[in-house]
Amino acid sequence: MELVIDRLSKQYKNKISVDRVSARLHKGVHGLLGENGAGKTTLMRMICGILKPTGGTVSYDGIDVSEEEYRAVLGYLPQDFGYYPEFTGMDFLMYMAALKGLGKTQAKRRAAELLQLVSLQEVAGRKIKTYSGGMKQRLGIAQALLNRPGLVVLDEPTAGLDPKERVRFRSLIQELGKESIVLLSTHIVSDVEHIADTVLIMKNGQLIYQDKWDGSRGNLEDFYLQHIGEGTVAGCGIRNGTEVEDRIGGDKS
């Protein structure tokens, strides 16, 4: 189980959104941090195959991102997306299951499991327009897991959740990381600190840090803030993206 991102770039007319990002991700939770506009969402969209890169490739176990087989192992929760207000929670999951190629019986069983997992089983028959923001977010997470994905891409999954739900979701994501590659983008550094096996930091479209996070470098928030600032991180010696690519050789293609 390996996601290979090789010199992935996205350039618009006068802006480079993602600049030659390379990484090899394996089973586990990978926390992606970065300021607004750092290129996290663009990177995730390219990993999900909904945005064509201007350079580089993405593949999962050798399957290219453009293939239907790739999309079959992918689960994606975007940062912000709309639902069908007239659908019930169950309808929405059944529709998404059909899109993911699940048969009716299998889809029903899986949808029921996931509704229970995200604590929405009581309101499964209610129209989505009556759901709160947190309930919608939980439904979004459920749809991403319908096909038991090998690659889960979560863009701000805990946004809109109350603290209790957030803690529950951390454990859920951690559980997912045991079976899948989970790429998690968030502004909440503590979420990453608690559950991520690897931390990736993006700045100005470049991946400026990528390594395992075991807490030996102190507090992640301080580490992150120093990283996205101009200064050098103590004990790490990393100053910019180019250096990162050179120094973190092990996980680069």
């Binding site: 912000d80 190629g101 749809q143 991403a144 096909n147």
Partner: peptide
């Protein structure tokens, strides 16, 4: 509608979202 609502993101990355849908 799906482009406006941004639902296209989850549709187009699903296995059947670009073809049979």
């Amino acid at each position: 509608d799906e482009h406006t609502r941004k639902t296209d993101q989850i549709i187009l990355c699903s296995p059947l979202g670009k073809t049979r849908l």
